[in-house]
Design a binder for these strands. Structure first.
Length: 358
DNA sequence: AACAGTCTCAACCGCCTCGAG
DNA sequence: TCTCGAGGCGGTTGAGACTGT
């Protein structure tokens, strides 16, 4: 049983929009607002189908759409979120102010996907390709590949920290439980569901505290080690993301600093919990600041909870050298370390509840 | 200058979800 | 509970721009 197309034949125009058509659509929407797309073409005097009008408006004409080059931080966010969510372009776009899902999708397909492949990373799994002909090389802060053939030669010599030497991970914790909580119905407004949601948020925050703290610490060390930073490496992000963004994605999805709609939600449930002081109306949002705060504040809270000793971790990590050349192995190991079951303060086999936390 | 191959991205297509009746 | 339509979403297409020969 197939649905009838929303617009069939009827002399409707297709293809590129003309300036005149754009003007008509903008003028109509300014006057009458969005919505009722089916009727808009007729009322606005356009020979287009409503769906086409909606897409044209949403992806191109809307006044608060940012176009052009993606910043490095935006790229990192796309890669991070794609690693954990896959091709959920609308979800990814929600974390990029003024970017549309279509633009994010296009940018991924035309730029980021190719770059990851060039770096020997599977853009689907965000893991090193099986036949990795070109070991991942981090992009420099200037946005250019910093390929250095000599690194390849050194790679075999620099493996001072193989994954085996890293803290062993049993990695059986079911992070998917948290992740899937994001998949709850949108109209989740009942009292009980709100209570449930709050509990999940609280638990997620605590979990995130832990992971963010570790990620932050590791990032600092890697920064010193490779003259970069945690988020300045496209080779680092995908792997580390397997853990970091999985655990943070629920909170990222719930806490959208760029969405007015989520502002109320933050006020109600999350401000005390994560204590992030973002300017929700700031159109020139600083992604670096976002990520930095995201890690640092969570780290502070983790310490406040008392279930985790950052200094101990730092001493552990500092005692081990991290080389750029064997980074893939290192990061894989650290990723495992991040979800080491033995360090988790709750029973992952049970439903999330505060009582499961130490 | 002309042509072919490649890249980019706006736009389209078809399916899915959700709310209204 | 079912049907229907609007809107949302992800995959795909193709026209135009760009690049190499």
């Amino acid at each position: 049983m197939s649905r009838k197309p929303c617009c069939v034949g009827e002399g409707l125009k297709k293809g590129a929009w003309t300036t005149e058509e754009d003007k008509k659509l903008i003028s109509y929407i300014h006057e009458h607002g969005e919505g009722g797309w089916r009727d808009i073409p007729q009322k606005a005097g356009l020979k287009r189908c409503g769906k086409s009008c909606r897409l044209r408006w949403a992806n191109y004409l809307k006044p608060d759409i940012k176009r052009g080059e993606f910043s490095y931080e935006e790229e990192q966010i796309i890669i991070m979120l794609h690693a954990s969510r896959g091709n959920k372009w609308s979800v990814i776009a929600r974390h990029l102010p003024k970017r549309t899902d279509n633009e994010v999708k296009n940018y991924w397909n035309t730029h980021l996907k190719k770059r990851l492949i060039d770096q020997g990373i599977d853009p689907l799994t965000h893991k090193p390709l099986a036949s990795n002909p070109n070991p991942a090389t981090p992009r420099t802060s200037e946005g250019q590949d910093d390929s250095n053939p000599s690194n390849l030669d050194e790679q075999s010599q620099s493996g001072s920290m193989s994954p085996k030497s890293l803290p062993h991970s049993s990695s059986s914790c079911n992070l998917q439980t948290i992740i899937n909580s994001d998949e709850t119905p949108r109209n989740n407004g009942s009292l009980s569901s709100k209570k449930c949601r709050f509990k999940k948020l609280s638990c997620t925050s605590k979990l995130l505290n832990k992971v963010a703290t570790k990620a932050s610490s590791i990032g600092n060390i890697l920064s010193a080690s490779m003259e970069g930073s945690l988020i300045r490496s496209t080779t680092l992000s995908p792997c580390l993301n397997d853990v970091f963004s999985e655990t943070s994605q629920f909170q990222m999805d719930e806490f959208d600093p760029f969405s007015h709609s989520s502002e109320q939600h933050i006020t109600d449930h999350m401000k005390e919990d994560i204590n992030m002081d973002f300017d929700l109306n700031n159109s020139e949002f600083d992604f670096s600041q976002f990520i930095e705060q995201f890690s640092n504040i969570e780290a502070e809270e983790a310490n406040a909870i008392g279930g985790y000793n950052q200094e101990l971790l730092l001493s552990d990590v500092s005692s081990t050298s991290v080389y750029e050349d064997n980074m893939m192995q290192n990061i894989t190991g650290w990723s495992n370390y991040l979800v080491d079951d033995s360090d988790f303060p709750y029973d992952t086999n049970q439903d999330f509840d505060d009582k499961n936390f130490i």
